[in-house]
């Protein structure tokens, strides 16, 4: 193994940016905020489309953090 890697490469140090990952945990743990039928979307109750929406939000968030981190 090369010993010269003293400075930490990108993405290996902890950054405050990672705190953004708390958002999906808070959102999903706050069950009472989404356990409802209205507002429905195309007949799909809020409970279902809202959680599906968080898949997209979390994916976008992860991509954002990755891009900032690897820059």
């Amino acid at each position: 193994m090369p010993e010269a890697q003293e400075t930490k490469p990108k993405g290996r140090r902890w950054r405050p940016l990672y705190l953004l990952f708390a958002l999906p945990f808070i959102a999903m743990f706050w069950v009472s905020s989404y356990d409802r039928i209205e507002p429905a979307l195309y007949g799909i109750p809020f409970f279902y489309w809202y959680q599906m929406l968080w898949i997209l939000i979390t994916s976008a968030l992860t991509l954002f953090i990755y891009l900032v981190d690897e820059r």
């Binding site: 993405g11 990672y18 990952f21 999906p24 945990f25 999903m28 409970f47 279902y48 959680q51 599906m52 968080w54 898949i55 979390t58 994916s59 992860t62 953090i65 990755y66």
Partner: peptide, 23 residues
């Protein structure tokens, strides 16, 4: 019924964990 949908928050939360821990 609705409790079966826990698979969705479950598969949301695995990815922040994957990103932070497993590299």
């Amino acid at each position: 019924g609705a409790v079966g949908f826990f698979a969705v928050p479950y598969t949301i939360l695995i990815y922040p964990i994957l990103f932070m821990v497993f590299p």
